[in-house]
Design a protein around this nucleic acid. Sequence first.
DNA 1: TAGATTGTTAATCGATTAACAATC
DNA 2: TAGATTGTTAATCGATTAACAATC
Lengths: 219, 219
Amino acid sequence: MATQHNTSLVVQKSTLSRLPLYYSHIRKMQQQGEKYVSAAAVAQSLNLNPVLVRKDLSGVSSVEGKPRAGFEIDTLLNDLSEFLGYNNVDEAILVGVGSLGRLILTNKEFSSMGLNITVGFDKDPDLHGLQVGDKFILPMEKMESYIKRTGVKIGIITVPADQAQAVCDQMVECGILAIWNFAFTLLNVPQGILVKNENLPSSLAVLSQQLAKKLNSNK
Amino acid sequence: MATQHNTSLVVQKSTLSRLPLYYSHIRKMQQQGEKYVSAAAVAQSLNLNPVLVRKDLSGVSSVEGKPRAGFEIDTLLNDLSEFLGYNNVDEAILVGVGSLGRLILTNKEFSSMGLNITVGFDKDPDLHGLQVGDKFILPMEKMESYIKRTGVKIGIITVPADQAQAVCDQMVECGILAIWNFAFTLLNVPQGILVKNENLPSSLAVLSQQLAKKLNSNK
DNA sequence: TAGATTGTTAATCGATTAACAATC
DNA sequence: TAGATTGTTAATCGATTAACAATC
C-alpha cells in the first residue's frame, strides 16, 4: 500500500492545532527514554480519538508507522518540528507593552517554539529605550522602518481594544502579513492578511454557559 | 409565522463564542445613541456572513426582529447579557499567582462580563496574605475549605504545565465543576467536569503555518 | 502465527451558507 | 407600495468517527 507522505499537505486547521500537543507529549516520552510511540498510545494519553491521531500523524510523518510498534520517536519529533516550522525561526514584533505585552515578550515558551519576538513598540515615551527581558521597547514611529528593514512578517497586537484597529492598519501598511490579535475586537484587514484572534471573553462565555446549562439540568 | 424564542436553546458552541463579540459591538452602538440594529449591519461590521448573524441573534433574542428595522438595541443587549449569564455573577478562584495569574486576577474586563474572581491561591509562602489588586492570595491548603464554604464552581489554572494536573485533581476533589486551563497541557478529568483550554502554542502554530504556506505559494 | 497497529474509504455529525417566502 | 430585513428549510462544506483490509 504505497502512500505519499508529506507530499499531500492536506492537513486541516484543526489538525494543526493538535500538533503542538502531540509534539510536547511525545517529547516528554523521548526524555523518559522511550524509542517508539504509537498513535494509539498518544490518543489515550491525550484523551483523543485514536483514528484522529493516526490520521494527523500519518499526514505529518515522513515515514510510515510500523504496525505493532508505532513511530520512531526521534524521526517523528523531527517531522513534527519541521512541519510546525519550529526549525526555521520566525520573527515577530509586538505592539503594546502593557502587562500582557510584557508577559508575552518575556515568555520563553514561544522562543522554544520558534517564535522570536525581536522588539516591542509602545506609544508611551517613558518606556522607550527600556528593556523587557532582553527586548528593547521602541517608539511607534520606528515601526515602519523597522519592519521594512528586517522584513519581519508577524505582528502581535496587545494594545487596548480601541487602539487595535489603528495599530493593525499601520502594521499592514508596513508589510506585516500575519497578525496575532489579543485585543478584544475583530480587525478589518485587506484580503490575504492572516489574523488569529485570541479571544478570552469568548472562551469564558462558552465555559460559563456550559456550566450554567449543566447546573440547571441537574436540578 | 409563529416562532418560539429562547425556549429552544439550540445555540451551538460556535454561536456562543460569537455572542460576546456581538454584545461588545452592539453596546458600542448603544453608546453612540443608536436605537436599532440589524443583523445585516452587525454582520458587515464584524465581517461575518449575514445569515449566520441572523440565526445567532434569532436564537437569543426574546422578541422577533422587525423587518426593515432590525432589533431594538436595549432589548437585544438585555437578552444577550441574560443569555451569556452576565447578570447572575459567577464566582471563580484562581490558582497560580505568577505573572499570568496576576494579569487575570486584576483584569477588569472579566468582572464586567460577570466573572468575579474572588481569591488567588499559590504555594509560595511569600505571597500568602498579600493582595493583588483587591484580591487576597491564600495558601493552597486553604483551597478545600474555601471552595466548600463558598460553593464556587469555576477554577482557573495558571500554574506551570507540570503542576497543572495536580492542581486540577485537587480542584475537582473539592467540588469545582468547570476549569479554565491556561497551562499548556491537556487535563484528565472525570466525566462531567468541563474544561476549556486556552492554548497559545496551538494558536501560534496555526498562524505561523498558514503564513509559511502562503509565503511558499507566492514564490 | 496471532494480534496490535497501521492507513484508507465510507458514514456520520455539525456548522455554515444559499435560497426563499413572510412581513413591516 | 417597494424594498430591506426577517426566520426557516435545504444544500454544502468540513471535520470526526466507524469499519476494514494490510502488515510487521
